[in-house]
Nucleic acid binder design. Sequence first.
DNA 1: GGCGCCATTATGCTTAAGCATAATATGGGC
DNA 2: GCCCATATTATGCTTAAGCATAATGGCGCC
Lengths: 233, 233
Amino acid sequence: MPTAALPVWSEIRGDLLRMIHTGAWKPGDQIPNEVELASTYGCTRSTVSRALRDLAEAGFLVRRRKSGTRVAANPTRRAPLEVPIIGDAIKAAGHAYRFELVERKLKTAPVNVTQALGMPAGIDLLHVQVVHRGGNLPLQFEDRWLNPLAATGISQADLATIAVDRWLLQFAPLGNATIAIMAEAAGEDIADALDLRTGDPVLVVERTSFRLSKPLSFLRLVHRPGHRITTAI
Amino acid sequence: MPTAALPVWSEIRGDLLRMIHTGAWKPGDQIPNEVELASTYGCTRSTVSRALRDLAEAGFLVRRRKSGTRVAANPTRRAPLEVPIIGDAIKAAGHAYRFELVERKLKTAPVNVTQALGMPAGIDLLHVQVVHRGGNLPLQFEDRWLNPLAATGISQADLATIAVDRWLLQFAPLGNATIAIMAEAAGEDIADALDLRTGDPVLVVERTSFRLSKPLSFLRLVHRPGHRITTAI
DNA sequence: GGCGCCATTATGCTTAAGCATAATATGGGC
DNA sequence: GCCCATATTATGCTTAAGCATAATGGCGCC
């Protein structure tokens, strides 16, 4: 059986990618322009363009008007880093999911939080802490500061019933966000919440998110040792 | 001054995205089809289609032939995770870059490595260890197992002069790879190499890469405490 | 020689039109 | 009522053609 008939642009993309991988075209090299490629592949410029655009978006090519298309000098590959709903992820891994609301209180936010969100120091934000469990083992500690003005309706939400992240997804789909991943030693509070020893290495994901250009939430997700964030490129 | 004139498809994309962010269109909702949207925006179907395709690729929309386009039920956002050349990253951060080749030797690879690469146990691979320094501080410990058959020419390369990652980029641009990020406690060897205390939390990135469908390299990058991997969505 | 303007060039965007394909809806036969 | 063939429908792909725009390179003016 022949392989399934892929669209032409996709075939071309594969072909061009092969030129890069085999080293026929090296990083920095200029490649033929759209018109030439169109004639070699016997299709229109649009179709070639689609393939080139795709490869450029994937980081393999760099395109500039007038000067043409070249193989990326330092192909900074971009791996898709998923931002899942924690409950779904735990269930997908085959564990029973349960979460405990530890805190839910309007409090003066610490400076690092207001700074990250670009808000005035000393402002009151909704502080939410949740422990997410998979099969009774505490897997993730969620520590979140929410701007009630951007997440309208959060005051009425019953966060002991619906997980905050799911609520946010439903009622305030997130816009922009910056993400940082780091390793830290568990402090006493984290060790307590995740049932660890102080000093154990934990993987921390910090996310500062905005919605409709307004600061929405500052979030720290602390994962128990052994947790891996995985992706593929 | 009016805002810079964006292309029509991009304006439409922004407009549709606003519908999602403001909650006018909720997760799961069906949105108007291409022809309707084209008539409301006063442009052709192709242009609308471009905007919709973009939003679908970004994970906001789900499109299916015949049944139409709907807002993604669980918008698993994808953040671009960059895979930089370490030397460039250190220089970009404003530090003097220096690296030391610690080991470079053909050795029997451990089981976890051969397994990850899908190679027979007990095979010999090129083991390379490098310490990357920024302003004299050891920032990253690189521990790599290379398949000489996929990285032809590596035996001749002077890895004390050119960093392995840069060499690979030049002579064997990487194809597919899987990536895992985790937190670990520094063992004695790591503590030694990075000038830390045993047990200090380190951020580890593991990358298994293939080239032209052949196993290429298994890599562990160990970062000193305080290192953050950042991205934005 | 140096500077600024203009022509050139490759990519980028848009329209128009048609065929292809996947998936659903429908209707006829049993 | 159920099942299968067929019609319908929305997305997906491709062509063809033209204008728009960003950069570059060269020409001419000073």
